[in-house]
């Protein structure tokens, strides 16, 4: 498929920034959105244009690093997935796709689509921990039973924190 991309380019936090329009061709529907961005970047490098900077790491939907605001939606049109698990089959040939960084005072843009999310670390520092030191003689892990329902709910809470 062939696509038109409107991507936010911003050199650094001080820069004003603006949208740039690029065309990409022969995108496979099996590619992830980030792999499509890789194709764009290889193309830009060949043209001598600096590639688009974006955050990404695990690319299997768990680390929470990939961000991006795609067509006016966080992580794009698919539901319950991160951008790295969004696949191009969710788009149509000839689509124009707008890609922006998160827009929030708490997350200043670092460059292009990359923002600084260290505010989340500061939230945890403000008290998001249990005050237990490392000890070799803590009570046995089964000393306090915890309801299955509560334990399972806690997985989801942690998943939410992890994705920020």
């Amino acid at each position: 498929m062939n696509l038109t991309l409107k991507i936010w380019r911003q050199k650094n936090a001080q820069d004003q920034g603006s949208f740039a329009t690029y065309a990409v061709r022969d995108i496979s529907p099996d590619m992830s959105f980030l792999e499509m961005m890789d194709v764009l970047n290889e193309q830009l490098i060949a043209q001598g244009v600096e590639p688009v900077v974006f955050d990404h790491d695990c690319r299997e939907g768990i680390c929470g690093m990939c961000s991006m605001f795609i067509n006016g939606e966080a992580h794009g049109p698919d539901r319950g997935v991160t951008t790295c698990q969004l696949h191009m089959r969710k788009f149509k040939d000839g689509d124009t796709i707008t890609v922006e960084p998160w827009r929030a005072k708490a997350f200043p843009v670092v460059r292009d689509l990359m923002v600084d999310r260290s505010a989340f670390d500061r939230v945890i520092q403000a008290g998001g921990y249990i005050s237990v030191n490392t000890m070799g003689n803590l009570p046995d892990a089964n000393a306090t039973p915890i309801e299955k329902h509560d334990a399972d709910a806690a997985f989801d809470a942690a998943t939410c924190i992890g994705c920020r």
């Binding site: 949208f19 006016g72 005072k105």
Partner: peptide, 16 residues
């Protein structure tokens, strides 16, 4: 409003 001084270029609010 103050938390987002720069607005999104495209915003599809109904999605969420």
């Amino acid at each position: 409003r103050a938390a987002r001084p720069v607005a999104y270029g495209t915003y599809h609010g109904a999605a969420n």
